[in-house]
Write a protein that binds this DNA or RNA. Structure first.
Lengths: 212, 212
DNA sequence: AAGTGTGAACTTTTTCACAGCT
DNA sequence: AGCTGTGAAAAAGTTCACACTT
């Protein structure tokens, strides 16, 4: 099926290409060259063509890429032509923000339920999504099919991770400030926090200061 | 000053090491081997030692690393022993979440002001932080010194980027769904969105499905 | 004439393996 | 005896450059 494993960095760039193509499509542009698209994505054109070659042979020699068609092929390749069901672990301000965020729904990511371990949060409803006790997870999963578990609390993220993976959830978005890792290659964890992003910037700023 | 440019991936891992060390320090553990720390960070021990060698010679042969001391050295290296001043562009739900989030303050990132282009948001105050018109940016910057600009709106992120960089802000955290790029190597942009993280997971899930 | 797709060359990053310090 | 720090080897990722298609 796959000829060669897709490099992580290529995956990240493909996602960017898709987003940039979606914006170009809105502007009613039909065709684009690798040169032009690459510039808009902050990479060079050879890189872009090599990255796209993982997806297939998508362009027309002498012409370039059809924006609409490339967008569709990329979207499909990235698993974004279908919808995915999510659950939330941790009804924090960040968690509530995600439940109430309609943007993710527009992109095909649907929160179906939220879970918490604090009694006072259980039974609440945000944007039509109910909060259950984490103990009830396996019971609820009899009724709904879940693809991705999102952890949004700094208080015991491991607890949610264990509950989710025990229930055979294979994809985890960890937004807690504690990075999480598992040996199991069957389970994919994406660790992200604002703090990581801000620290990259603080390193950069410190470096430019030290140079002067 | 720098002997060799720090690879982007090394930077990302150093940030993870720091976070994991902070947690170990809370548990009152004194020393750790590269083997043990590496396992907790999802990398191998040679990788960890090589990464740390960019920071300096930090361990004791035959013994390992002092958690407290390594933590401090890393924190310093990453520019996290000082405080950084932030401004927000775009008073969206995500933006308001960030203004009200006290975690970032605890880690040394302080929002000093927020800016918006919509009349109805201007003059509001969140967590003691005032919202100004984006037009007033240069005026406000006479009074405060800003290190990082955070863009938190999908509506005209380019406008905020231009305003920020025109005012010589060198570090940008872009949380809009539109990735932003600049040629200028003096300016660092971190693009992040939940959508990117979720798309990585959707690709992974699609792949494991396709294999069966 | 223009621009893709891709082997081959090059560069960077990771892993190995061990000398050397405690 | 144990574990770091690091050259050297291996692997992975990027860029070049051009044959080939439209």
């Amino acid at each position: 099926m796959k000829i060669k494993e897709l490099p992580e960095k290529t995956l990240k760039r493909l996602i960017i290409y898709l987003k940039v193509l979606e914006n170009l499509d809105k502007q009613n542009i039909d065709f684009i060259s690798s040169e032009d698209l690459a510039k808009r994505c902050g990479v060079n054109s050879a890189q872009l063509r090599k990255d796209l070659s993982f997806v297939g042979s998508l362009g027309t020699k002498g012409v370039g890429y059809s924006i609409r068609s490339l967008k569709f092929r990329l979207k499909n390749f990235l698993g974004r032509t279908r919808e995915w069901n999510l659950i939330l672990g941790g009804v924090t301000p960040l968690g509530i923000f995600l439940l109430e965020n309609t943007n993710l729904q527009k992109e095909g990511f649907y929160f179906l339920a939220a879970f918490d371990i604090n009694e006072e949060n259980i039974g609440k409803i945000y944007n039509g999504i109910s909060v259950y006790s984490l103990d009830q997870l396996s019971y609820i999963l009899n009724v709904i099919k879940v693809d991705i578990g999102v952890i949004a609390t700094d208080e015991n993220p491991h607890l949610y991770l264990k509950a989710f993976t025990d229930q055979k959830i294979k994809a985890i978005l960890n937004l807690s400030k504690i990075p999480l890792f598992l040996e199991d290659p069957e389970i994919r964890i994406e660790n992200f926090s604002f703090l990581i992003a801000l620290t990259k910037l603080s390193y950069f700023l410190k470096e430019i200061k030290d140079e002067n």
